[in-house]
């Protein structure tokens, strides 16, 4: 690692002040490996781990609010979430491994926007709102490309607000070694209609209007029979070709629909 200054602010206001000239450290599950490889050289790390107001899960009527510093393990084991929006607990419980889930946070995952990360599918698929130190950003506008988001330099994610879906489920085909998604699909019936969000398959999470239209006509796995997204532009690596990923997207979407439909 290159040298850096380490600070651990005790208030969000101080963190934002210090963040302008530095980089936030949340669970460190992505950032510390990146620093070890010397792929980044922040002059200052602003550790968010002493800010209780960024932690915790609150269900407010039809909205689930999850603080940016809430660990994947806490989302996975939240009894409140298992009642209000089980899809979120399920998704978080499938991230990486238990040790990664004990440190990694929702804010870090969403800010990082790894093309194969799970949470972006939830933010986009459930039509969530990302609440930052400066504004509220709609899920539809947040993810702007591979590893890039609408966040400005120094902008801090405070929490993410998820509208409670009528029913929703997430299905992923994990890379057998890393557990990141080769293809992960979140299907949700929301107040604003059916939403389908895909992660892992392309350079950035995206929605699939054709699937959404088909599922609006009939919310059943068979509604997607014979439908496939174009493989152009999908990820190609040693784990799978774009064509393979396109096929996976349909299969995962059908599994998610079956699971969501079973939830009633």
């Amino acid at each position: 690692m290159y040298e850096f200054e380490y600070v651990r602010p005790q208030t969000v206001a101080t963190a934002v002040e210090q963040g302008g000239a530095g980089q936030y450290l949340a669970g460190g599950m992505t950032l510390l490996p990146t620093l070890k490889l010397r792929l980044a050289q922040p002059g200052r790390l602003v550790d968010l781990n002493a800010l209780p107001e960024l932690q915790g899960i609150r269900v407010d009527g039809n909205v689930v609010r999850i603080g940016a510093m809430t660990r994947h393990a806490d989302v996975a084991r939240s009894a409140e979430l298992r009642r209000a929006a089980p899809v979120l607990a399920e998704l978080a419980g499938g991230i990486g491994d238990p040790h990664v889930r004990n440190r990694g946070t929702i804010g870090g995952s969403v800010a990082n926007n790894d093309p194969a990360a799970d949470y972006p599918a939830a933010v986009l698929g459930l039509g969530a709102t990302v609440v930052t130190s400066a504004r509220e950003i709609a899920g539809d506008d947040f993810f702007t490309g591979m590893f890039s988001t609408a966040l400005a330099a120094g902008e801090l994610i405070r929490r993410i607000d998820f509208p409670v879906p009528k029913r929703a489920a997430y299905a992923k085909f994990p890379n057998p070694a890393s557990r990141y998604a080769m293809a992960g699909v979140l299907v949700a019936e929301t107040a604003g209609g059916i939403r389908v969000a895909v992660t892992g398959a392309g350079p950035c999470v995206f929605r699939v209007p054709e699937f959404e239209a088909a599922l609006t006509r009939r919310f059943a796995p068979e509604a997607l029979d014979g439908l496939e997204i174009p493989s152009d532009g999908l990820n190609q690596d040693l784990h799978g070709s774009p064509e393979y990923r396109a096929a996976l997207v349909t299969v995962m979407a059908q599994r998610a629909v079956a699971h969501a439909a079973a939830r009633g």
């Binding site: 460190g28 599950m29 510390l32 490996p33 040790h99 440190r103």
Partner: peptide, 8 residues
């Protein structure tokens, strides 16, 4: 449980 190689 945490991976102590990935925590300062």
């Amino acid at each position: 449980s945490v991976k102590s190689c990935t925590m300062l």
